[in-house]
């Protein structure tokens, strides 16, 4: 499915540009995006090194395991295929906490760490495990208490009350998260673990 979406986006873009006489735009956009990819990766290198380093200290000190242990039974129930003391629970919980607090920079390293742990327990290495899909469903629909970037945009636009959308945002994202959990559960039932 990803192959198809990727191909369709690319081909539809080139096709449209060709028909509307903007074919030069394709070259410029493709090259710019490739450069942007490197820029994002370089920024990530620093942040990822910092957080993975701290995370490793926390691991060696037993803090991650402790977090995994106390992480609510609710979180554990969402991942029936993982063992009760799976080392993946630590980074999963930390990723979700970072997302909730709106710490996007810290969330990515924890999320990628969680994927590495989940991959260790994955029997078929080139295929997504159910636990991974559940984690990504939670991750992409996770609640953020303070959507900082959009509040900044509202401030700049001269809003009387930039933060008034926090309540509606939390409501909408709670709906999305519940939908993600239910839909994921139904798919998992159909496809098996």
């Amino acid at each position: 499915m990803v192959n198809l979406v990727w191909l369709l986006l690319l081909l539809a873009g080139i096709f449209t540009a060709a028909l509307s006489g903007k074919i030069d735009q394709v070259t410029a956009s493709a090259l710019e995006a490739a450069e942007l990819g490197i820029a994002v990766a370089i920024q990530l290198m620093g942040v990822m090194s910092l957080w993975m380093g701290i995370m490793h200290i926390a691991e060696k000190a037993g803090l991650v395991q402790a977090l995994a242990k106390i992480s609510s039974p609710l979180i554990r129930r969402l991942f029936p295929s993982l063992k009760e003391n799976s080392p993946a629970f630590g980074p999963i919980v930390m990723n979700l906490c970072a997302n909730i607090l709106g710490l996007g920079n810290a969330a990515t390293p924890f999320g990628l760490k969680a994927m590495q742990e989940l991959q260790k327990e994955n029997p078929v290495k080139d295929t997504a495990s159910s636990a991974m899909i559940t984690f990504l469903a939670l991750n992409t629909s996770c609640i953020t208490i303070v959507p900082a970037s959009i509040i900044a945009v509202r401030m700049k636009a001269g809003s009387i009350s930039p933060t008034e959308i926090i309540g509606t945002t939390i409501f909408a994202t709670t709906c999305a998260m519940n939908a993600a959990i239910i839909v994921d559960y139904l798919f998992r039932k159909r496809h098996g673990l």
Binding site: W6, L7, L9, L10, A12, G13, I14, F15, T16, A17, S20, K22, Q25, V26, A28, S29, A30, E32, A33, A34, L36, G37, V40
Partner: peptide, 12 residues
């Protein structure tokens, strides 16, 4: 990034 950018910038 490349496929999304081409898609968006082209007007598709």
């Amino acid at each position: 990034l490349v496929s999304i950018r081409v898609f968006v910038d082209s007007g598709a």
